[in-house]
Write a protein that binds this DNA or RNA. Structure first.
Lengths: 224, 224
DNA sequence: TTCGGCCGTCAAGAACGCGTCAAAGGTGTC
DNA sequence: GACACCTTTGACGCGTTCTTGACGGCCGAA
């Protein structure tokens, strides 16, 4: 979870930011003045700081420099002042972005995304496990006992539809539409053909499938 | 010297940016449309891109995506449109900052400083090893058994996209988009041509590639 | 029990995609 | 203007994949 520190002395703005950020999956901490902000930053080690200038106790640049002393987390500055000199001062002090109030919350969230995208490029690959087989949909890679298994394009499409609906029954009609196109409704022989192929490549015992199941008369189901 | 690519179709703005950036010690390249921009980016490998939306030939997002395909250089978007939706779209497409025209040149320079500050110190020299070949993407240098290997610009772009997604399959569609532009969808003969060229230059046995693999009907994959 | 529907399997020809070679544009350099 | 280099295009052979048809087994319904 991405940790965000919100620093604002106006309770309603701080609250609005907290709610919006939390709703988008961020872990939010708030601080109402500069001293609190520096303490909180040291405690939670945020991945990003949203900092309102014009705090009661410190100058904005001081807070930025205090943070920059030990943290490289992006700092997104909020301010009521639109003067260029203010922006330049804040940016050169170490801020990464500067947004003037009133601001659009959607835009702010987009800027938060842009800032966190840079610092945390976590290249994760969601891997699905099917018994002794692992399927990496993003990388388009299948491994069975560590060895690479090659799937044809049609096999991939069919497998992908099933894997994206784990546990759910997918009707033959839907499978045909997704893989072959909307004009294919009754070519169930295609499904028989390719499901057999997939089971041969993925199931431990293709004759007795455990994960790629047939629901007679209805469709197919992937059981994790 | 920090290299900046300025993309703007209005000559006076491009000129003003060039002069101001050059005066502050940046090495400036300019481009007047999206296609030029992508070409120039491939040629000079900029450290930062200043991109005006509303180019004559391409949508701004397309240019951003085209750049993001292989470059992590910060993208600073200029635009006359102040609507939040525009900003959000650009930022989510991969832009790092969004400034609305008319803009203060001092502020723009501060934002440029902020953007380059981030990426500057963190830039490493990722050398990828492909069997007997080493590829330095940042320095644009390939060595095979110690000897330098020359790659054409197109070969570089193609290789770079693949190397930036190690182990992952990259669809031919995506390769075409990132190297030739969004209007290329079915020119798979280009890919065949250039993949063969790359294999001839990089693989020990070009007829039996070990690292630059073909996934028939889908795309290509770089295996480290 | 018999019948029809549905599924798994096998085996063909057709169609497609890839690697390769060759050559024609296009661009910048000397 | 000639040259070299890079990019774009076209065409061919070959292996793989897709499509199509047919057969037999299983199961529920008549």
């Amino acid at each position: 979870m991405i940790k965000v520190l919100v620093v604002d002395d106006e309770p309603q703005i701080a609250r609005a930011l907290r709610i919006n950020l939390a709703a988008h999956g961020y872990e939010v901490t708030t601080a109402a003045d500069g001293a609190q902000a520096l303490r909180a930053a040291a405690a939670v080690v945020p991945d990003l700081v949203v900092l309102d200038l014009g705090l009661p106790d410190m100058d904005g640049s001081e807070v930025i420099e205090g943070l920059r002393g030990w943290s490289k987390a992006p700092i997104l500055v909020l301010s009521g002042r639109a003067a260029s000199a203010e922006k330049i001062a804040a940016l050169d002090a170490g801020a990464d972005d500067y947004v003037t109030k009133p601001f659009d919350i959607g835009e702010l969230l987009a800027r938060v995304r842009a800032a966190t995208r840079r610092s945390g490029p976590g290249s994760d690959s969601p891997v699905t496990a099917i018994g002794p087989v692992t399927v990496d949909l993003a990388a388009r890679e299948v491994r069975k006992d560590g060895d690479e298994v090659r799937l044809t394009p049609t096999e991939w499409q069919l497998l992908e539809v099933l894997l994206r609906n784990p546990g759910k029954l997918v009707s033959q009609r839907e499978l045909l539409h997704r893989v072959w196109g909307p004009n294919y409704d009754r070519e169930t022989n295609y499904l028989r053909q390719y499901m057999a192929q997939l089971r041969r490549k993925l199931e431990a015992d293709p004759a007795r499938p455990v994960h790629l199941l047939t629901e007679p008369g209805m469709g197919y189901r992937f059981r994790p």
